[in-house]
């Protein structure tokens, strides 16, 4: 038994109730714990995205530069955005799918925002080109038929996820469809992403 314990025992109240000394111990411990947590907070939080990274903000994409069957890849927040001018066959293929059979059910129309005139233009598909499995870039550019996967859309070479012409996951380990970024038409031919 240490000297402190002996001292403490002598100072204990006869009924074994907490004394002023007990109170000081607990208060000191609590203050130290709060202080340690307050100090740890900046040490942990410094690792979050810094202000300049968060300010990466939004980009504008000119749609007039792509023609039917082509795809544009634009870097946005360190990730590529796919802008695909779909052919009529690709749109028909996306519409023909039984929604209930999809791992992440979504209609083709759900994957668009209204254009500048307020109607949905299913020709221009805008997606974040990052596989929802482990973040690789799926392949499926115009002209590379072999690389478009089993459903004519995109294929992720890392772990074999197949996406259809609407960017919806059809086969493979990816859990969800290729995400649609936050974007809006700011004129007939220009969209703003982010």
């Amino acid at each position: 038994m240490s000297d402190t314990d002996k001292f403490d025992e002598q100072n204990n109240d006869e009924n074994g109730e907490p004394t002023r000394r007990d109170f000081i111990y607990i208060a000191t411990g609590a203050a130290a714990a709060v202080g340690a947590a307050a100090f740890a907070w900046p040490l942990v939080t410094q690792m979050s995205a810094a202000a300049d990274t968060r300010a990466a903000g939004s980009i504008e994409i000119d749609l007039s530069k792509i023609s039917e069957g082509q795809q544009l890849k634009v870097l946005w927040r360190g990730k590529p955005v796919f802008v695909r001018y779909r052919t009529q066959e690709e749109i028909d293929a996306a519409d023909a799918v039984d929604i209930a059979s999809l791992p992440d059910p979504q209609t083709d129309d759900d994957r668009f925002v209204p254009n500048f005139s307020g109607v949905i233009d299913k020709r221009i598909l805008v997606m974040v080109g990052v596989c929802t499995h482990f973040g690789c870039i799926p392949v499926g550019e115009q002209g590379k038929i072999d690389a478009q996967g089993a459903f004519g859309g995109w294929y992720c070479p890392c772990h074999g996820s197949h996406y259809d012409t609407s960017g919806r996951i059809r086969q493979g380990p990816a859990p969800t469809n290729l995400p649609i970024p936050e974007y809006a038409y700011i004129s007939d031919t220009v969209i703003k992403v982010g």
Binding site: M47, S48, A49, A50, T53, A56, R77, G78, K79, G135
Partner: peptide
Amino acid sequence: GAIPVVGESLQQWLLGGYSIGNP
């Protein structure tokens, strides 16, 4: 990022951004 609920924020915290970069 695959961890339910906190995954995405945890991933951004680890990377220091939206994707792998200088940080």
